[in-house]
């Protein structure tokens, strides 16, 4: 996330459509997924100063509005809608034009993609077993959510690739860091929205399945141990 938003990569992202799409692929998909898989929250919570944890983080996290908002965005339908909706929102030509022109809107766009990426992949790849009380949905639902979001991205990416000529006018206005044909740029951007994004869903699906099998194995081992323990007691 740092690499695509705080380095010269961000400069290129502001003027070249396909690099902008790589930036969003990183913020919304790849980096967010990797962060969730690393599951740094327990370590960060342990590492936080006790006064901060006890007086601010825990009370705020347990407060009604925060729990309510978290519960709402972790609803599978809402999460999938937000995930796809944000991609479509920021790629709506008029909104995209404004977001690329305006410094503050550009920041909101990138922040929203990064935060939503974290929330979405946290819902799908949560390392803990399903628990409705903690808004952790079952593995079946995780599979459906991660698969469903692939299709609208494929449609949008293919549309940009095949029919997007002149749609993103900003790149014809803003200049480019090196002479690049705007149509080539647009087609590359469409391909990135189309193929790697959909592949991230496949990857996500495989990870969910592996989590599910591991969980089932753990459950089976636990039941085996329980049975052995009750057998030896008898």
């Amino acid at each position: 996330m740092y690499g695509v938003s705080q380095t010269q990569f961000d400069y290129f992202s502001q003027y070249v459509f396909f690099i902008h799409r790589i930036q969003h692929l990183a913020l919304h998909h790849v980096a967010a997924m990797l962060l969730v898989l690393a599951n740094p929250l327990p370590v960060l919570a342990q590492g936080a100063p006790a006064w901060l944890r006890d007086n601010l983080i825990t009370p705020v996290w347990r407060s009604g509005p925060v729990r309510g908002a978290y519960g709402a965005v972790q609803q599978p339908v809402v999460a999938a809608f937000l995930f796809v909706g944000l991609i479509y929102l920021w790629l709506t030509p008029s909104i995209h034009f404004d977001a690329m022109l305006s410094g503050w809107l550009y920041s909101i766009m990138n922040w929203s993609m990064a935060l939503d990426g974290l929330l979405f992949w946290w819902l799908v790849l949560n390392p803990y077993p399903p628990d409705p009380a903690q808004h952790r949905i079952g593995y079946g639902k995780r599979c459906i959510v991660v698969a469903v979001v692939a299709f609208p991205q494929i449609v949008l990416g293919a549309y940009i690739f095949f029919y997007g000529t002149g749609v993103y006018e900003y790149y014809e206005v803003c200049g480019s860091p090196w002479p690049i044909d705007t149509d080539t740029d647009r087609m590359l951007g469409g391909l990135i929205t189309w193929i790697p994004s959909a592949m991230m869903s496949v990857l996500g699906l495989l990870i969910v399945l592996s989590q599910m099998f591991r969980q089932e194995k753990r459950e089976a081992e636990r039941m085996g141990r329980d049975a052995a323990a009750s057998g030896s007691t008898a």
């Binding site: 003027y15 410094g103 803003c174 200049g175």
Partner: peptide, 8 residues
């Protein structure tokens, strides 16, 4: 003004 330029 969020524009750029470059040299070939």
């Amino acid at each position: 003004y969020r524009v750029t330029y470059g040299y070939g």
